[in-house]
Amino acid sequence: MADDPKEQQPPPLGSAGEKPAAPGAAPAPPKPVAPPVPKAPPVGPAPLDNDLVKRYRARFGAAIREAVEDRKQAILVVEREHLAEIARYTHDEEKFNLLSDLTAVDWPKREKRFDVVLNLYSFTHNARLRLKVQAGAGESVTSVSGVWPTANWLEREVYDMFGIEFAGHPNLQRILLPEEWQGFPLRKDYDILTQDQAWVRENLGIESGQ
């Protein structure tokens, strides 16, 4: 169960009363509500090697680049070239038949700057699984809309916001932004104040306020 309720957190570093008072300072009144943040929270990515991962490794070998667990959630990083078969296997054999979400994350400093992220859910196992594919700028990712029809609009949105092409997508067009819009807003190099000035001028007849 990848999404179980959290196990008990270790107790915080100490209640306000036990805090070592700074020498010379007046004893601070104990704060009732907001004790200090735990310094080293026991959360963060860690390697994962459970049955599920073993099955994937056995079947796809090196195509499974990484298997990590973060906040008790399983993540598989897979090779871009093998996404189609892995998606098919995940859907048919592992029964992750609900594609909750498909999105992307931009890491401009990395060699392959995009992560395409698939959040999956299995009714059979009541478990979630996250598939990640890395794609460089200009590289296209295989569309999974043939496996999970939900992906149709979600991939269009990723294309709209990040400019990632999905090979084999039935209708890869912008979905939220106008078709003629220039630029991909959710890329990190697209500043929050950036706009397609020409589009705004032409279609709205105003000078952009930004």
Binding site: G44, D70, Q73, R128
Partner: peptide
């Protein structure tokens, strides 16, 4: 009991990611 958990005024979650639905 209290209504606010142990969070600071400055929130810096450790590196990582989460999906919560």
């Amino acid at each position: 009991g209290p209504i606010l958990g142990k969070v600071g005024k400055v929130m810096k979650p450790p590196v990582g990611e989460v999906y919560h639905a």
